[in-house]
Write a protein that binds this DNA or RNA. Structure first.
Lengths: 226, 226
DNA sequence: ACACTTCCCGCACACATGTGCTACTTCTAT
DNA sequence: ATAGAAGTAGCACATGTGTGCGGGAAGTGT
């Protein structure tokens, strides 16, 4: 929200904003938040202790050129934050929390279809940049400590995109059909069998026949509250 | 969204809206959605094919009296939908992304005060349940792979609450003042010295004098995009 | 028919508000 | 130093915009 459009993933190519521009941006945000409509140039002037409307205009032009805001010319209060405020609900998506997943102590898979047809226990709001705009994404809560090897701890929430066919190196929720165990591992297809690789070199990979494994989803994000 | 505020419960007092008022309400909604700011009386006039501004005003008064909208008198575009559109961002908060943190390769701490006075590089929207409503929370991006032992991977974003005094077992961002290294570890006070404990039993803890350590923040959440 | 309410119309006043103009200050690089 | 760029200041003009006023049209009950 504070950065020009696309930069988040890459690191940040943020052109520096002057203190005043930063201040205007913050004022803009809180004003809209408080009033429900954008401020006028003079609102900004007084709110930011600026002595002239033209200075506000000058800096607003700057902010628009840098992509922080949109302006509608000749329209009173015609200022909008680019990613902001109004569209912000679009930056959050509510995911169904379908159940628990663990490695060591297997949890029975509710239905043959996996969690897909399960009633959600709860729901979690996550920012869209975590899901990358994918559809039908769901969340599972990690139970037990046996998946520390995958950098995932008890209580973590994993966000999964439902897939049937994994690519190598994907971290997947896989069901071993003969034992009905479900586990989070990295996936590697090796001929007729599949290697399920922990992330910790201290632990041994699991090898199973390809037809004994069902991939239910691929982990796209992890959330941990400590 | 279409029903008047509190009166609805009681039953009756719902005065029916005229077609025109219904239309104005819908126009209001779509206009705000499209432009990011409320319409003027004249915008409504043209948008709803009304021949006079006073008619719009008349109906707006009506809508306000019935509780469908709020108006700020003498303020251009000072119209707001009561239940609407604006107040639903309470479940997301925008945190400043203040910089990087790593264990192995120490990164110079910008100022003696830590990141507190640093210009944010970017910002990250996170759901409020991750911060637990704490104030002054900030985010750091993890650089380098040397913190896998703490279940934290390269590129993860850690959310920190600024604290000066850590409790045992807290995961903290700690600065070793003599080498100016900053690291994420679990914190244990042991007499006059401090043990900074990795989460991996394969790795040795760091022992330092208590006065050689500055705790800057406590990790309250971790985000990982895979 | 009558009064009465609700709703509509056109207009115009007063102020709100975006923007252009000119001049001045501060910063920055040569 | 010095020139150019970036930022600040004050003002004024044209237009945007909320609101009030007199009056008309349409429904409603008696």
């Amino acid at each position: 929200m504070r950065s020009p459009p696309s930069t988040y993933q890459e690191g940040f190519s943020v052109k520096k904003l002057s203190t005043r521009q930063q201040g205007i941006l913050e004022f803009l945000e809180s004003f809209i938040d408080e009033h429900g409509y954008p401020p006028t140039v003079r609102d900004i002037q007084h709110g930011c202790s600026i002595s002239s409307t033209s200075v506000v205009d000058y800096n607003l032009r700057h902010l628009e050129r840098e992509g922080y805001i949109n302006r509608d010319p000749d329209v009173s209060r015609g200022i909008g934050l680019t990613e902001g405020s109004y569209g912000r609900r679009d930056n959050v998506v509510s995911l169904p929390l379908l159940g628990y997943i663990a490695a060591g102590t297997p949890i029975p898979v509710p239905t043959a279809e996996g969690w897909a047809s399960t009633e959600p226990l709860d729901s979690v709001d996550v920012p869209t940049y975590l899901t990358g705009g994918r559809r039908d994404v769901y969340a599972l809560k990690v139970k037990g400590f046996s998946m520390i090897d995958a950098l995932i701890d008890e209580g973590d929430v994993v966000v999964l995109e439902p897939i049937r066919q994994a690519q190598n190196n994907d971290m997947v929720a896989a069901v071993l059909t003969d034992t009905n165990e479900v586990t989070l591992k990295r996936f590697y297809a090796e001929g007729s069998r599949v290697r399920l690789q922990p992330a910790n070199s201290q632990m041994e990979p699991i090898y199973v026949d390809a037809d004994k494994v069902e991939v239910h989803g691929r982990v796209v994000a992890v959330l941990r509250i400590m």
